[in-house]
């Protein structure tokens, strides 16, 4: 059976797995972005707190994903729960780091000007600092997404959803005719999804980064 025959014969299954993969990554990114931005806002004004936040998330990122999943299983069981927790944890560093760098990088003169014309703390954060940090934050989100795309594939081993199931099916059926097709379908599917997400982020950047600060 050729690769294309395989894809068309299992169209529905592949479509579901692709959808699950994308949806898991997207939802984890939303959660990670919210957490990451909150952490960044809470820490960016203190050099020590920033370093602790970045250091901690960096340490998490150093942990091999298979080991992290292994640690989560005894606590959360198999399936969706450990997958979501692991993906969110891995996505945090680029977001936290870039959000802190972006927020801390806002020209102090601009903040002085904003205070001087009568903006309060919340307005300065929402209207000046976050919009100016947005390009850096968006870069962090892009990097995170690419990363957890691949990690999500490993999560299939602990009964996580998504295209990783195709890859492990290929591994399990080593020697059978469809093994290689399944592995290709899973791997290529992840690559294509990652590129699509990246294109979507590029578009989002075009639409949301004001012309005045576009690089």
């Amino acid at each position: 059976m050729s690769f294309w025959d395989y894809v068309s014969s299992r169209r529905e299954q592949l479509w579901i797995e692709t959808w699950m993969h994308a949806s898991a990554v997207f939802q984890c990114m939303v959660i990670a972005t919210l957490i990451g931005v909150v952490v960044a806002i809470a820490t960016y004004r203190s050099a020590l707190a920033s370093r602790i936040a970045i250091g901690t998330t960096a340490t998490v990122l150093t942990i091999p994903s298979f080991a992290l999943l292994g640690l989560l299983i005894p606590m959360l069981g198999l399936g969706v729960a450990p997958t979501v927790v692991a993906l969110v944890l891995y996505a945090l560093l680029p977001i936290v780091r870039n959000a802190i760098v972006g927020l801390a990088g806002v020209d102090p003169q601009l903040v002085d000007a904003a205070r001087g014309i009568g903006m309060n703390r919340v307005m300065i954060l929402l209207r000046i600092e976050l919009p100016l940090a947005w390009p850096a934050l968006l870069t962090g989100i892009r990097v995170s997404t690419q990363m957890i795309m691949g990690i999500a594939a490993i999560a299939a081993y602990v009964s996580g959803p998504g295209l990783g199931n195709e890859i492990f099916t290929g591994l399990a059926r080593l020697g059978s005719a469809n093994a290689i097709n399944a592995a290709w379908a899973g791997t290529l599917g992840v690559v294509v999804l990652a590129l699509l997400f990246d294109a979507a982020y590029a578009l989002l950047g075009r639409l949301t980064v004001p012309r005045g600060i576009r690089g």
């Binding site: 690419q146 990363m147 795309m149 691949g150 594939a153 490993i154 990783g164 890859i167 492990f168 290929g170 591994l171 080593l174 093994a179 290689i180 592995a183 290709w184 899973g186 791997t187 992840v190 690559v191 990652a194 590129l195 990246d198």
Partner: peptide, 15 residues
């Protein structure tokens, strides 16, 4: 390459 899942790469090489 960054978007390629390591596990997929390994499995394909094994096959």
């Amino acid at each position: 390459g960054q978007a390629t899942p390591a596990i997929g790469l390994l499995v394909l090489l094994t096959l």
